[in-house]
Design a protein around this nucleic acid. Structure first.
Length: 465
RNA sequence: GGUCCCUUCGUCUAUCGGUUAGGACACAUGGUUUUCAUCCAUGAAAGAGGGGUUCGAUUCCCCUAGGGACCGCCA
C-alpha cells in the first residue's frame, strides 16, 4: 500500500474563503487518519493576479484553524520547466498537437456558438492538419489530443461512478502561445511528482478531473483517487465566493469566533459521524472518513457557528480562554491593561456564561477594563433621590466588611430591600447602573465582588452627590 | 443551451428495506433566576411529485419538477 498523500492547492489570487478552508481541513483529516502526509501547494502560475498578500493570508488562515502542512509549501511557479517538459513529451508521443488558431478566431467561434445557443467546443481544427499549413506569423498553443470515442468512468469516492462521453471533453490547451503551462497540465504534473494518492476537492473541479485523468493515462502514470465534495452555499443557495461577506476566517475571528469552534463547525458541515456533534482534533482525525461526506451542498448557518463557539467558550479551561481573550482584545479591541488582567481572569467564570463570542465577553467586561464609567441619560433618570439614598446606605454598610464575599453582601442587600420597602430590582438596578453604566450585565454580586471594595466605593461616591 | 451532480424538520444531519423517521442549532412554552443570559423540562417541525420492484419502501429503479456546478490561452 502506497502511503497516503493529500494536498490543498489554492491559487493566491484572492483571500481564502471558508469553503477552501473546509476542503483543506478534509484533506488534512483524511491524510492524518491514514497516517499519511498533507501538502500545501500554492498555485501561483497566474503572475498577473497572484499576490504575496494572498499567499500569506492562506498560510495564516490554515495555521489559525490548526491545519498544518507537512514539509514546506510547494510553490508551483518554481516547477514550470517540468510542466513544459511534459507538454513536449506529450507532443512527441502524439498526445498533443500545435494549434494555430488565433485567440480572436476562438473568441469569434464562441460568440457564434452563444448566438446559436449551441454549446461551444473547440472544433479540433488543427488536430490532424500538417505543420506545413501553419501561418508563419503566429505562435501556436499546444492542445491535448483528447479522446473522441467512448466514455470514461470516474470512480469518485464521494459521488460514486460518474460516466461521461469522451467527446464532450474538448482538446484543451496545455501550453499557451507564450509557452507557459495551463492549470490542468501543471496540476497533473505536480500531483504526480508529489505522489499525491487522494485528490479531495470541490465539486466544481469535476470536469478538470476528466481532463487530468487523460494526461495521467497518456503519460502512463498511476492514477490517484478522486473525491469531489459538494460545495458550500450561501443562504441564497449559490456557490460561496470570495466576494461574499463573512467568507474569510478573519470575518469570524474579528467577531470573536474561536478557531476550534469554527473547525468543529466546518467539520460537521457536509460530514457526519452518527449523532456526534462535538469533536476534539484527535477525535476528528480518528473518525474522519470519506463515507461520511454527504452528496448535497450545504448552507452556511451563522447561528450554528455561534452556538458552537458558545459551547467551546463554556467548556474550555479558563486559562486557555483567557489566553484567547487576551489576544483577541489585543488584536481587535484595546489591550487589556496589566493591572486588570487578574480581575478579568477571576471574572471569566461568570463572564463566559453570558457569552457566545469573545466580543460578548469583551462587552460585558468593559466595566472592569475601563476606569471611567460612561452613562446614558435614560439610565441616569432611574437614579432618583430614593435610589441615591439606597446607594449611599449601601456604601456605608460595606465599610465594615472585610472579606467582601457574597455571603457578606447578601444580608446587606436584603436589609436594604426591607428597610426601604422595595424589591431586589429597586436596589440592584441603581447599583448596577452606577457601577457599570448599564442596565444589563453580569449578576450584581459578581459585579460588586469583581470590582473590589475600593473601586466600588469610588464609583458610588462619584455619583451619589 | 449542453454535460454532470443533488433533493429527510427553517438549517446541519442520522437511517445503509421493516423505526411512534432520531439528534443538534434555531424557534415556542413553562420552571429556576437580581437584569440580560445560563441551566432544566416540554412542544411544534421533514422523506419534492408520480410511477414501478417488493410481503413491505425515506431507503432500490425510472420519469417529472426544483436546485446547483462546469462550459477561459483563470486556477
Amino acid at each position: 500500500m502506497k502511503k497516503v498523500a493529500t494536498r490543498f492547492a489554492p491559487s493566491p489570487t484572492g483571500p481564502l474563503h471558508i469553503g477552501g478552508v473546509r476542503t483543506a481541513l478534509f484533506n488534512w483529516l483524511y491524510s492524518k487518519n491514514k497516517n499519511g502526509s498533507f501538502y500545501l501547494r500554492i498555485e501561483d502560475t497566474d503572475k498577473e493576479r497572484s499576490k504575496d498578500e494572498y499567499k500569506n493570508q492562506i498560510i495564516n488562515s490554515l495555521k489559525w484553524i490548526g491545519v498544518e502542512n507537512d514539509g514546506d509549501e510547494y510553490i508551483q511557479s518554481k516547477k514550470i520547466d517540468d510542466h513544459i517538459n511534459i507538454a513536449n513529451e506529450l507532443l512527441k508521443n502524439g498526445h498533443a498537437y500545435k494549434c494555430y488558431c488565433s485567440s480572436e478566431e476562438i473568441e469569434e467561434q464562441k460568440k457564434r456558438a452563444k448566438q446559436k445557443k449551441i454549446p461551444y467546443i473547440y472544433d479540433r481544427k488543427w488536430r490532424d492538419k500538417s505543420e506545413s499549413e501553419a501561418p508563419k506569423d503566429l505562435k501556436p498553443t499546444i492542445r491535448f489530443k483528447s479522446k473522441i470515442e467512448g466514455t470514461t468512468i470516474l470512480k469518485d469516492l464521494v459521488q460514486g461512478d460518474v460516466e461521461i462521453e469522451n467527446n464532450t471533453i474538448e482538446d484543451f490547451i496545455i501550453l499557451r502561445n507564450d509557452g507557459t503551462p495551463t492549470y490542468n497540465l501543471s496540476a497533473s504534473v505536480d500531483d504526480h511528482q508529489m505522489n499525491i494518492t487522494h485528490i479531495i476537492r470541490g465539486d466544481d473541479h469535476k470536469i478538470n478531473t476528466f481532463k487530468q485523468m487523460q494526461i495521467y493515462l497518456a503519460m502512463k502514470w498511476e492514477l490517484p483517487s478522486f473525491a469531489h465534495i459538494p460545495l458550500i452555499h450561501t443562504t441564497e443557495g449559490k456557490k460561496l465566493s470570495k466576494r461574499d461577506k463573512a467568507s474569510t476566517l478573519n470575518d469570524y475571528s474579528k467577531i470573536g469566533i474561536m478557531p476550534e469552534a469554527l473547525r468543529n463547525y466546518l467539520l460537521r458541515l457536509g460530514w457526519s459521524y452518527k449523532d456526534k456533534e462535538i469533536f476534539t482534533i484527535d477525535e476528528s482525525i480518528k473518525y474522519f472518513n470519506l463515507e461520511g461526506i454527504g452528496k448535497s451542498p450545504s448552507k452556511l448557518d451563522m447561528s450554528r457557528i455561534l452556538s458552537m463557539n458558545e459551547h467551546y467558550i463554556k467548556n474550555m479551561s479558563e486559562n486557555e480562554l483567557y489566553i484567547q481573550f487576551e489576544s483577541y482584545c489585543d488584536k481587535y479591541k484595546n489591550k487589556i491593561p496589566n493591572e486588570k488582567s487578574d480581575k478579568i481572569k477571576k471574572s471569566l467564570n461568570f463572564l463566559k456564561n453570558k457569552a457566545k463570542t469573545l466580543e460578548d465577553i469583551y462587552n460585558n467586561s468593559t466595566y472592569i477594563i475601563e476606569d471611567v464609567v460612561s452613562f446614558n441619560n435614560d439610565d441616569l433618570k432611574l437614579i432618583d433621590d430614593n435610589a441615591k439614598k439606597i446607594i449611599s446606605e449601601f456604601s456605608s454598610n460595606i465599610d465594615k466588611l472585610d472579606k467582601f464575599e457574597r455571603y457578606e453582601l447578601e444580608p446587606i442587600l436584603e436589609n436594604l430591600i426591607k428597610s426601604n420597602n422595595t424589591n431586589f430590582k429597586g436596589v440592584g438596578q441603581p447599583l448596577r447602573i452606577i457601577l457599570t453604566g448599564s442596565k444589563f450585565g453580569p449578576g450584581i454580586y459578581d459585579i460588586i465582588i469583581s470590582l473590589g471594595k475600593e473601586e466600588v466605593k469610588k464609583r458610588l461616591s462619584a455619583k451619589i452627590t
